[in-house]
Each structure stands twice: as C-alpha cells, then as structure tokens.
Amino acid sequence: MSFDAFAGTDDYIADDGLLASVNAAIALRRPLLVKGEPGTGKTMLARAVAASLNMSLLSWHVKSTTKAVDGQYTYDVVQRLNDSRFGDADVSDIRNYIRLGVMGQAFASDERVVLLIDEIDKADLEFPNDLLRELDEMAFHIPELDETVAAKHRPVVIITSNAEKELPDAFLRRCVFHFISFPERVQMEQIVRVHHPRLDQALMDRALDRFFAFRKTTGLRKPPSTSELVDWLTVLSHAGVDVESVQTGDPFLGVLFKQEQDLVAATAPKRRTLY
C-alpha cells in the first residue's frame, strides 16, 4: 500500500470492515465518519489510529453550543479591552489575543496528526456545513489578521456521531463512512481479553452468557455495551465472585444497568423461570 496503513493495535481490536474504512480514509485523505451505538469504541478508534501511525492525537469535543469557528480560532476581545485599560500587555498586536482552536492547532502542527472531532451530532444543525470548506481545503482564514492558516500536513480526520441528528448530505458525501456494529461474541471475547488478560475462562464464559442474554432483553432503555461489560468483569474479578453465582445471583448488576427500569426489566423474566 502506498500510504501509512492502520492495522489495529494491541489493545484495540478492529474488524476487517473498520480497517478497510480507516485505510480508505487515510489513502483518500478524507475524513472518516464513524457511527455506532454508544460504547462500541468510536472515540477509542481515534486513539488507536494515532498510536498505530505514531502520530499525536488532537481531540475536539463538540458540545451543543460549539460553533465551527471555535475549532479554528478564538479572538479574546474582552481580554484585549481589559489590557487596554490597564496597559498590562501589548494591545496593538491582535495576534496576542488570537488563540488557535483544536482544528487550527492540527493544521498548524509541524507533524501530521490525528484530529478527532468527537460527537459532531451534538452541535447545531448547521455545524457540519460550516466545516465543509475547512475539511475540503484543510485551510481557513482569520479575518482579524488577514491570514490564512493552511495545513502543513493534512491531518487524519476522524469524526464520530451518535446519530442524534441527521448530518447534511453535502457533508456525508465528503466523508468515508463506517458503522461500528455491536461486536459478536467471539470478537467481544477478544476485546475483553485485551482488558482482562488473566481473567478466569469459566468466569468469562458465564459473564458473556449473561451479558448477551441481557442484551436480548426487550424494552431496555440503554442496553449494556462493551465498556459496561469490561467494568462489570473488573468488579466481578476484584470481588472474587465465584463462577456459579454469576449465572444465578446476578451480582453487581448496577454496573451494567445505569437505569432503574432497566435493572428491573433485566432481572424480572429470570425470576419467573425460577419458580
């Protein structure tokens, strides 16, 4: 391959589809849009890509109030006004009051970096559209300085979405898309092994049995995901719970279910079969 290829890392298990998508994004120099249930490792992917390609990772965590320009730069007018009154600093140079945002830093970096735009769907409806030109040309203009910040090295851009809002078509067209499906049992075991290399196999099997049974329970508001399973196994192994009681006693379910109704829903059908 004629580019730096991503092959997963020791602590991040990626399937073929994900590898192909990441490599396509790197080769095509396009942003990779990753969707999937919470807890399927979307954010972790960026870390793994950065580690695997030996690049540093810059994360831009999008909030509902985030504007596209925030990622480029901020101009601290209030500080400048304040300084002008008290004469503390050199007010004549606007540059002192311009701070690059995460995207700006990624562009200005002397090395190629991985830029993570996390949970892009949290922001306003227009947010992705406002990023189009920047992501296409990997450059933006700062009117206050009349300067253009252009990427020295095109960063590897990874964008995650929880699908809370639909993204604009023009934006989607520019991205390489990947949907991380929930791991199958075999893959799940590999993932858990990464976090718990010395876990007792019998405990692992029982816990996975219960976990996948819970996920099949209908009517859950938030089915437990990978991260909850890993936490649960941590608790189980620390508390020294014996293998049998994982099946019958459902210990520490609060780790798996974060909502009261889910806890009730998950345990209810099982009691019925006991009596």
Binding site: A20, S21, K35, L172, F177, F179
Partner: peptide, 16 residues
C-alpha cells in the same frame, strides 16, 4: 474481494 466489499461500502453508504 472482501476488501473491495468493505471499501466500497465505506464510500457508497452514508448511513447504516
């Protein structure tokens, strides 16, 4: 062919 399948899907699809 597997690679082609995954690659094409990443480029052709915009949603699961």
């Amino acid at each position: 062919i597997d690679g082609l399948y995954h690659l094409g899907r990443a480029i052709y699809c915009r949603s699961e």
